[in-house]
Design a protein around this nucleic acid. Sequence first.
DNA 1: AGGGTGACGATCA
DNA 2: ATGATCGCCACCC
Length: 118
Amino acid sequence: MPSRKEEQPSLLSTIANTIRKVPRGRVSTYGAIAKAAGYPRNARYVALVLRRVAGLPWQRILGSGGRIALRGEAALEQRFLLEAEGVRFRGRTVDLAIFEHKFPSKTRRAATKRQASC
DNA sequence: AGGGTGACGATCA
DNA sequence: ATGATCGCCACCC
């Protein structure tokens, strides 16, 4: 029996799971993560999750436009880690057109799989 | 219980 | 292009 508290569908785990889906060598943004998780207004919360939850590929999450949102040394470390994964920077930003991970959209489910069943 | 806060995002000067 | 401001919203104290 589920206990009296429902912590299962928590925002935190939902967003954390979404973050984990970003593959190595790819990046995503706070807004995109929030949206993919189903909470488009919670970009800020994504950042909180990254701080709170350990073991996430935190370096793959960037601000809008592919900017690094961190400051100081942490920003340098993030850039270093990303470049080590093969993500290349153009100036201070990552070219999202190339490196942004596309999340499967809920609304159009299995557009590609659909062909397989055909 | 209430208000300040932020690894954001979009807009304006 | 950079910097300031506002809106957002769950978290944290």
